[in-house]
């Protein structure tokens, strides 16, 4: 990437971040709620993007980890724990469970892996619904308090939105660092060619499990934010459909692209709001839009951009070649 392009990228991200901070200031309660939800779902989708997009392991269990996070936060904060302590515990739990869920991935791949994780999702849903002593069953847990961050209460929608967007920022930075670290390269090697990765001395076992564990932790973090956002947690939002939706977000946005989950979550969370005018038809339009997009570009929205950029780059390169060629001929 040239220096000019990098400057452009930095300027663009500053504008986007500033926009995300300033524009919602005069949004109403509902608008802020939807935007906060977008931030939360983006975090969860980023986790899945690491597992699927970078490490190439299909998972239909991300929704279950959001559920674990949400229930962890709900149960602990209603018992007087601070949210940050709940976050710590959830991270540990999700890491361990995600690590264990990775073991099937060492034996089976593709659709088999999808179905193992699907089964895990369904089992977790049953636990949320049936273990009433812990989760209060179908009645759910209400009156979940919103935390104080460095002494600032976040009870109002705007401060809580800032908490969500701030968390999203931190997670994005961490992810950006991870992808560029040797670990990120190892994950991609795993996706592209596991056998070659292994022959180059990458411990594919460990990295497969790690991809699941870290991806699951991000799902848990999203859940920890989800609980105080809705202030009410019941089993229904964490059924299999959430996992399917998150998978759709990653693929539609563009799996394996850093910005994919942002766009995917935007389409999944914000598009239905924009399609309100269509009333009962909006989910149908949404489904049709996803199908048409995937037929046109199976690598998602960012796949279109990527194709456009690489074709421009090839054109630029061939133009340079042609110019050099003619110069060479003139010199001879």
């Amino acid at each position: 990437m040239s220096k000019h392009n990098r400057l452009l990228l930095v300027a663009l991200s500053i504008i986007v971040v500033a926009g995300l901070i300033i524009i919602p200031m005069n949004f109403n309660r509902y608008g802020l709620y939807i935007l906060s939800q977008w931030a939360v779902m983006t975090i969860a989708a980023m986790g899945l993007n690491l597992t699927l997009g970078y490490a190439g392991q299909v998972s239909l269990a991300q929704g279950a980890f959001v559920g674990i996070g949400a229930y962890g936060a709900a149960i602990l904060t209603t018992h007087g724990w601070p949210l940050i302590a709940a976050l710590g515990l959830v991270i540990v739990i999700c890491f361990v469970v995600g690590w264990l869920l990775g073991y099937p991935a060492l034996r089976v791949q593709h659709h088999y892996l999808a179905f193992v994780t699907l089964a895990f999702s369904t089992l977790m849903f049953l636990v949320f619904r049936n273990e009433s002593w812990l989760t209060n069953g179908i009645y759910g847990i209400s009156n979940i308090p919103r935390p104080e961050v460095f002494g600032f209460p976040t009870r109002k929608p705007l401060p809580f939105y800032y908490l969500c967007i701030g968390s999203l920022g931190l997670v994005t930075l961490a992810m950006w660092w991870l992808i560029r670290s040797p670990w990120g390269r190892a994950f991609m090697a795993l996706r592209e060619n596991p056998i070659r990765a292994q022959s180059l001395g990458i411990d594919t076992r460990r990295y497969t499990l790690m991809a699941f564990a870290i991806g699951s932790v991000l799902g848990g973090i999203a859940g920890v934010l989800y609980a105080p956002l809705t202030q009410y947690v019941d089993p229904v939002p964490f059924n299999l459909q959430l996992s399917l939706d998150l998978l759709m977000m990653v693929i539609v946005g563009g799996s394996g692209f850093m910005l994919g989950p942002f766009l995917g979550a935007m389409i999944a969370v914000l598009l239905p709001e924009w399609l309100r005018f269509a009333e009962g038809y909006y989910l149908m339009l949404y489904a049709a839009a996803v199908i048409v997009l995937l037929i046109y570009s199976p690598s998602g929205i960012l796949g279109i951009l990527d194709r456009y950029l690489s074709s421009r780059r090839t054109q630029a390169a061939s133009a340079l070649r042609a110019a050099a060629q003619s110069k060479l001929e003139a010199a001879q």
């Binding site: 998978l247 759709m248 989910l283 149908m284 996803v290 199908i291 037929i295 199976p298």
Partner: peptide
């Protein structure tokens, strides 16, 4: 047919979207 050559996963996702579409159409 249009999606087959792009591999298993995008097609599987498209059928998930189709499932949502059919469900909603019947409901509506």
């Amino acid at each position: 047919d249009p999606m087959l050559r792009h591999g298993v996963l995008p097609l599987a996702i498209a059928t998930m979207a189709l499932a949502i579409g059919i469900k909603e159409a019947v409901k509506q």
